[in-house]
Design a protein around this nucleic acid. Structure first.
Lengths: 112, 112
DNA sequence: CTGTATCCCGGGTGATACTG
DNA sequence: CAGTATCACCCGGGATACAG
């Protein structure tokens, strides 16, 4: 029967929809931006950079972005553990656009 | 006691956050794009353009976007009623970014 | 035609505790 | 340090009916 639940896993209706699903979310934009400004950040550094994020959301969001090939994840097998995150080539493609959005936000925040 | 619920009405943490709250959501990007391609659309035309949206979400989203000054709303007082929506100047500022995102989505959709 | 008004559900998100 | 695990909550969003 399947019943076709209207989940977000349904096929995107168009490329704008598709793109928004990959960078939408509550934190993805800010993570992309943080990695753009710092090149490489460790898990904890990212957490401090976002300030209001929980470990659950940070982990979850990073996993999604890694699966979508937006970021790279490099693990150092040592004690204590160390994991570095950085932008992938695909992730870098999104920076001009995040940058545009940031400047737009800066302008509008001032005058509203 | 207030208890400070962590609602989305909290102040944005940065300009990227600020911008994402205005164009995030499930339909805003597609509405901006539809209005960019068609210049002016009526309520029903927008609904057909989105295809899977309900009247509730369409109305709600349009109201938010109007409040945020992203779109213009022009009412014709006649029977039957007629309402036209179009991009505001601020809304038009976002088109390059939506456009960039759309092209990115087009490319990625093909190769995944 | 252009919306309003309800009801309701799922899951996205938060808080907290715990592990290797 | 870098995550998992669990519980609980809220609200984004869907379905449906109705109104001006």
């Amino acid at each position: 029967m399947k019943k076709e639940g209207k989940k977000c896993s349904d096929a995107p209706t168009c490329s704008v929809d598709y793109a928004f699903r990959r960078i939408g979310g509550k934190y993805k934009g800010r993570i992309l931006w943080a990695l753009h400004e710092n090149t490489i950040l460790r898990y904890g550094e990212l957490g401090r950079n976002l300030a209001d994020i929980t470990t659950k959301m940070l982990t979850q969001t990073l996993k999604e972005m890694e699966k979508d090939k937006l970021i790279n994840r490099k693990v150092y097998h040592q004690v204590p553990p160390k994991v570095e995150y950085s932008l992938s080539e695909i992730g870098k493609e999104l920076i001009p656009f995040i940058n545009y959005l940031k400047e737009w936000g800066d302008k509008k925040m001032g005058r509203i």
